[in-house]
C-alpha cells in the first residue's frame, strides 16, 4: 500500500475522529447495519424482531426483563425500594410476590402493618402491581385485626409506580 493511498483516507478518518472527539454531545445508538435494517423492514412471522428465544429468555425484554426475574424488573426494584423500611419475610422474583413482616411506625407503636405486593405483569404497566395492606392494633388482649384505610394500598401502589418510572427514566438517561 502506497503512502498516497493512505493519504486519501485522511478526509473520512479525520471526520470520524472529530465525531469521536465530540464528547458531551447528545448521542444515540450507532445506526443499524445492513442485516438489521433488512430484518426490521421485512419483519417476522413471529412478530417484532422475530426468532425463538431459547432457554426461556425474552428478546423483547430489554431492560424490562433481565435474567433471574420473571416479572417486570422496574416494578420489582421499585417495590423493593418502596418497602425498604419494612422487614421482608419473602421476596420471590419469579412469582413476583413480596411479603413483609409486621412493622410498627415509630410514632404509632400501638399499631402495626403488614404488606403484600403482587407484581402481575412483565410490562411496566399501571395495573401491573397490586398491594394488600393488613393492619393490627394492640389492646389489652394483645394484637387484633383492624380496619385499613382504603387509600393506603392505592397510595403505596402509586409510590411503587412512581419509583418504577424514575428507575426507567434513569436507565434511559444512562444509555443515552
Amino acid at each position: 500500500m502506497t503512502r498516497s493511498s493512505l493519504r486519501r483516507l485522511w478526509l473520512p478518518v479525520t471526520a470520524g475522529l472529530l465525531l469521536v472527539g465530540c464528547a458531551g454531545l447528545q448521542t444515540t445508538e450507532p445506526p443499524l447495519g445492513r442485516d438489521a435494517q433488512d430484518a426490521r423492514r421485512i419483519g417476522s412471522i413471529l412478530g417484532d424482531e422475530g426468532g425463538f428465544n431459547l432457554f426461556g429468555g425474552s428478546r423483547r425484554r430489554g431492560d424490562d426483563q433481565p435474567a433471574g426475574i420473571a416479572v417486570n424488573t422496574y416494578l420489582w426494584r421499585a417495590s423493593i425500594d418502596t418497602l425498604a423500611f419494612m422487614p421482608l419475610v419473602s421476596a420471590d422474583p419469579f412469582g413476583g410476590v413480596i411479603l413483609t413482616d409486621w412493622h410498627s411506625p415509630p410514632d404509632s407503636p400501638s399499631e402495626r402493618f403488614r404488606i403484600s405486593v403482587f407484581i402481575l405483569d412483565r410490562q411496566l404497566r399501571a395495573d401491573g402491581v397490586r398491594v394488600s395492606v393488613f393492619r393490627q392494633i394492640r389492646d389489652a388482649a394483645g394484637w387484633s385485626d383492624a380496619q385499613v384505610n382504603q387509600r393506603t394500598a392505592s397510595d403505596i401502589e402509586t409510590a411503587i409506580l412512581t419509583r418504577a418510572r424514575q428507575l426507567r427514566l434513569d436507565s434511559t438517561a444512562q444509555r443515552n
Binding site: 426468532g51 428465544n53 431459547l54 429468555g57 433481565p66 418502596t82 411506625p105 397510595d155 428507575l167
Partner: peptide, 28 residues
C-alpha cells in the same frame, strides 16, 4: 415511610454497581 425509603434504597443499589448481566439466546 414508603415514599421516603425508596430513593435511599435505590441509591444504595446503584452504589453497589450491580451487574445483572441478563442474556438471551435467540434463533432466527
Amino acid at each position: 415511610a414508603a415514599l421516603s425509603a425508596a430513593p435511599a434504597y435505590a441509591q444504595a443499589q446503584r452504589n453497589a454497581a450491580t451487574s445483572a448481566a441478563p442474556f438471551s439466546v435467540n434463533l432466527r
